[in-house]
Write a protein that binds this DNA or RNA. Sequence first.
DNA 1: ACGTTATAGTTTCACTTGTAACCAATTGCA
DNA 2: TGCAATTGGTTACAAGTGAAACTATAACGT
Lengths: 149, 149
Amino acid sequence: MTPETVAAHAPLELEHFLPYRLSILSNTVSQSIATEYQDRFELSMTEWRVMTILARFPEISAREVVDRSAMDKVAVSRAVARLVNAGRVDRGIHDGDKRRSVLKLSEAGWAIHDEVAPLARAHERELLARLDQGEQAQLNSILDKLLAT
Amino acid sequence: MTPETVAAHAPLELEHFLPYRLSILSNTVSQSIATEYQDRFELSMTEWRVMTILARFPEISAREVVDRSAMDKVAVSRAVARLVNAGRVDRGIHDGDKRRSVLKLSEAGWAIHDEVAPLARAHERELLARLDQGEQAQLNSILDKLLAT
DNA sequence: ACGTTATAGTTTCACTTGTAACCAATTGCA
DNA sequence: TGCAATTGGTTACAAGTGAAACTATAACGT
């Protein structure tokens, strides 16, 4: 297989391929945050995401957590189960619809939230520090477009 | 828990949190490409990545595949095993170092590559079509900075 | 030359994840 | 009212994944 033959097949150059670059960046960033709270609190990324949602929207059902996140319902169900088990989330039953749960962070849950949230924000700041103000704004607006439905 | 109390805890707003947005975007994009080739060729994302690397750099070892990708060696080992098994990759042994494998796409492997690569590129184009020329350039330069080391 | 250390790659085991099937409660409507 | 369809949530099973142990070969230092 000569170089000419390879070129004829027009192989992808991963390092210039947008989906690949996004994937590397996203994994690097998420993983660097996740390792911190995983080590310190034995908290999976899914669990942490559920916690952030319950922090903003207390007293919602698992279904609503699913709707507000990009997670699927099995993942949420399992994360909630672990969180309830660990005493980090209180689960009640909805008045008038016994299928629905009513979820909120417990005291212990809030305590963890209040430690992890600043840590996550610090990572975000650190990342953004590589860009100037203009680039930060551009990135946001570009992501808005790429994420639109 | 009143709204005021919630605010006091300063919960993260996931939809404005950069690592989260990156993660959603990256998963959406990679997944939409992956489902296509998974359905059509029973090819996992890891296998496809190995194939793209072998397309550009034929006759390299598994170790070099690891170095050139962000995958870990176990994942590569398994992907290569499946690819060899499916007759999509030929595996030889390095002259002078019997530990090293020498990998390259087989005819069948190239045939698949030549179908999937344009498909992946089409997805990338489709994504980039939401941005104008300037934004595309900005995104590239921003990703360069964020991905540096 | 010989034992130690390092490297390439595979295997094993425990854990996570995704899909589909499932159960129970609720809704819709004939 | 009663029964089919829908919805919230969990469970079961198969497949995928990661960390560590393992095998075989090679490199290094004395």
